[in-house]
């Protein structure tokens, strides 16, 4: 399931709902992405006061559905959930939740990483940081493309 929303989400409630009534689920793996309070890769980077997330409605859902389908073809998954927020967010707020449920842990762990690695390079979201030195669009990281390519070469 895929949800794009401005409002926050409750991870506990989402996972409880995901597994509800499905006794064949043996494990759930979840990843939660948060807004950092600094820019770049160094903890002493510029201070961030807020983050705005823009996306391409329609294409976002299409790309996330494709990623979910690829994960389900690759692993034996019982449930998958992707929630991504858009709009204005503050430091420490939740941005994204990826949860995968399977009979056994390996499929859940690996597919959650797969979904995040593809989301980072394929899903049309853009972050704009507002900090003490003004506003700027976040640059994409080469390391994110490399992570996706690792899966493609396996």
């Amino acid at each position: 399931m895929i949800r794009i929303q401005t409002e926050d989400f409750d991870v506990g409630a989402e996972i409880k709902n995901l597994v509800s009534g499905k006794g064949n689920i043996g494990g759930v793996c979840s990843f939660i992405g948060l807004v950092r309070d600094f820019s770049g890769n160094e903890p002493n980077g510029e201070n961030i006061t807020s983050l705005t997330l823009e996306h391409y409605p329609g294409m976002t859902e299409k790309q996330l559905e494709k990623i979910e389908t690829q994960a389900r073809q690759r692993w034996d998954l019982i449930e998958t959930l992707i929630i991504h927020r858009v709009g204005q967010l503050q430091p420490s707020e939740q941005i994204v939740l990826v949860a995968t449920a399977a009979a056994h842990r390996d499929a859940a762990f690996e597919s959650a990483k797969f979904i995040m690695d593809f989301l980072k390079t394929e899903a049309p979201f853009w972050k704009k940081e507002l900090g003490n030195k003004g506003a700027k669009w976040v640059a994409a990281k080469q390391s994110d493309s490399a992570k996706k390519e690792t899966w493609e070469n396996e």
Binding site: L53, K120, T121, P124, F125, W126, A139, A140
Partner: peptide, 24 residues
Amino acid sequence: EHVQVSHPLSDSDEVAFFPPVTGG
């Protein structure tokens, strides 16, 4: 769908231009 710049175009297409994505 993501495409390369060599991709052909027709009058009924929806074309979008954007920077490399930075979600998640």
